[in-house]
């Protein structure tokens, strides 16, 4: 697991059915591009978050494939519709094989 990785998520606590809600996510990650060299001139291997997904009650909201052109501490904003109350599941996939998961509940009236 890469050092100091910490996800942050912003989801409204409640919404009405069918309403478009805005979701923001941020994860602290160095997003090493693989293009830099260390002090000895050796290439520093790429180490990035390469995929991010958001699902709601088992159904997909978004699925993003990321490359090294995404900035340090990857940030995303997108919109979802929620048909019923339930749980969002956010997943980040690291090049090193680590998977970071976080969930958020929402009440739909």
């Amino acid at each position: 697991m890469a050092k100091g990785v910490k996800p942050r998520i912003k989801v409204p606590k409640q919404a009405s059915a069918g309403e478009a809600i805005t979701i923001k996510t941020l994860i602290s990650h160095k997003m090493e591009t693989g293009l830099r060299k260390d002090a000895d001139g050796n290439k520093i291997p790429q180490s990035i978050i390469n995929r991010f997904t958001c699902d709601f009650n088992g159904s997909n909201v978004v699925d993003f494939d990321m490359k090294a052109g995404i900035s340090v501490n990857p940030y995303f904003q997108f919109e979802a519709v929620v048909p019923e109350s339930g749980e969002f599941k956010f997943t980040w996939y690291d090049d090193d094989g680590s998977v970071y998961e976080k969930t958020k509940k929402i009440t739909v009236s």
Partner: peptide
């Protein structure tokens, strides 16, 4: 990046 939108994206 490639943004893929699932059934629940608004």
């Amino acid at each position: 990046v490639t943004f893929k939108f699932g059934p629940l994206s608004a």
